[in-house]
């Protein structure tokens, strides 16, 4: 039982590491229109990509401070919300990362097929 639990924990950690790299790509891809934190989580979940709030909110701020997103507070709704939207620099980086992702996916597919996984 203990071994099974350890294996499950190990899998979860590795799976988390695997997904960590593509979280940025997933977030940037869904910010063509302004989104606030929770709406982006919803939007990603609807498309099959689940992400923790504790991971996404700091990531949005980091992308903004790196100049790939713009943000503004909107006070018109039921409560003030901070909206994020991709900007020109973000679009450029998204295009580059998307290209990298396609190449990587193809390579990985070949590697896994060769090994019959």
């Amino acid at each position: 039982m203990i071994i099974q639990a350890t294996e499950q924990e190990g899998y979860e950690k590795l799976s988390q590491e695997l997904r960590r790299g593509v979280v940025i790509l997933a977030a940037l891809s869904q910010l063509q229109t302004p989104q606030y934190g929770y709406s982006l989580i919803d939007r990603l979940a609807e498309r099959g990509f689940n992400i923790d709030q504790g991971t996404l909110y700091p990531l949005l701020r980091r992308l903004e401070s790196q100049g790939f997103l713009d943000s503004m507070w909107n006070v018109e709704g039921s409560r003030p919300r901070r909206y994020y939207v991709i900007n020109e620099a973000g679009r450029t980086i998204l295009a580059q990362l998307s290209h990298d992702w396609q190449s990587l996916a193809e390579v990985m597919q070949r590697l896994l097929n060769d090994e019959g996984v």
């Binding site: 606030y36 934190g37 929770y38 709406s39 919803d42 709030q53 909110y57 701020r61 039921s78 409560r79 003030p80 919300r81 901070r82």
Partner: peptide
């Protein structure tokens, strides 16, 4: 950061 977190927690409950 606190204002954004507060707003997100309310959103999560409302949703």
């Amino acid at each position: 950061i606190l204002a954004e977190l507060r707003s997100s927690i309310y959103d999560s409950l409302e949703r």
